[in-house]
Amino acid sequence: MKPNPASRKAHPPAIDRRRLRRVFERLLAHHGPQHWWPHDGHPFEIMIGAVLTQNTAWTNVEKAMERLRRARALTARRILALPQGELAELIRPSGYYNIKADRLQHLCRWYQEGGGFQVLNEWDTATLRRSLLAVKGVGPETCDDILLYAFERPVFVVDAYTFRLFQRLGLIEEGHRYESLRAAVETAIGPHTAFFNELHALVVRHCSGTCKPRPLCQSCPLRRQCAYNRQLVAQPR
């Protein structure tokens, strides 16, 4: 789903703070709070979920997580102790289970070698992000999922839905990189963990149900401020 990085612009787009906040407010009013990864979730479980959710629906992740719980394997020590094939079988519902088993064990090794959550949580965000990105199988989106939801750092998670919605609204032009869009949103809003949490969840909800590849513009709360919708309306019938 992700655009080709080689085709994206390197310079950060400028995003209008007021426009972005209006988008947020309308999505929140339309869809309501999403309650993604609430604060009572254990940070380590959130980290595991961030890997399992790669290229699959969250319902499949929940099934895989429940299988890990029933096997009493939802700790870094137990995941590392399991043969990779056995771990892969436990997380089978999440898809790409052999690849994800390998990635989970690399993440758990990093987690243990770093001293666990309490020690890692003392690291500054930039250092923590660099270290996570060096873990096999942890790309920018998974890394920022972990930073935002497990470590509660003010980092915005960008995904293909974000590119689609922001381009259609005219907030950005086509061709921007992950890092430039992330930086632009963080610069426009400032360090605001709760805002980034809710905005990311709302974008995913909206684009999976309304702003699809073939969008349902008539039911969209953003249609009046959407450049893409204006183009559709202006086209001769």
Rank of each mutant, 00 (worst) to 15 (best):
A6C: 01
E86C: 10
A57D: 06
L148D: 07
I48Y: 03
V204R: 12
R70F: 09
H200E: 08
R168S: 02
T187K: 14
A14D: 07
G114Y: 01
P83L: 05
I46D: 07
A71I: 03
Q231S: 15
V135R: 02
R237W: 11
G139H: 02
K63Q: 15
L104P: 03
R224T: 11
A73G: 14
M47Y: 08
R72C: 07
E113H: 05
S180D: 00
G190C: 06
A101V: 03
P154D: 04
R8Y: 00
T210Q: 11
N98I: 04
H192T: 12
L132N: 03
P33C: 06
L107N: 08
E141T: 04
D145V: 10
F44T: 11
T56M: 07
R109D: 08
E141C: 05
A194G: 10
P236E: 09
W110Y: 09
E141N: 08
A126Y: 07
E113M: 06
T187R: 13
L52G: 02
P5N: 01
E186H: 08
W123S: 14
G175N: 00
K100E: 00
I189F: 04
H176G: 01
V155N: 01
L80V: 06
V138T: 13
A6L: 12
P12C: 01
I172A: 00
I15T: 01
P12A: 05
G137H: 06
R78A: 15
A88S: 15
R130K: 09
K100S: 00
I172C: 00
V23H: 11
L148N: 14
E198G: 08
R18F: 12
P5C: 00
A126Q: 14
F24S: 11
R223W: 04
R17W: 10
H35F: 13
K100Q: 02
N98R: 13
Y228I: 06
Y161G: 06
E86P: 06
N60A: 11
G209K: 14
R17A: 14
R22Y: 09
D159P: 07
A227R: 11
P13H: 01
Q84G: 14
A184E: 00
V135Y: 02
R129M: 01
I189A: 01
L20Q: 06
E152Y: 05
V203Q: 15
A14C: 02
I172M: 00
P13L: 03
A160L: 05
G175E: 00
Q225V: 06
H192Y: 12
H11S: 13
R19K: 15
A76D: 07
A64M: 11
N229Q: 09
T125H: 07
N229V: 12
C217Y: 09
F151K: 00
G209Q: 15
A81D: 14
P33V: 08
H176R: 01
T193N: 01
D159C: 09
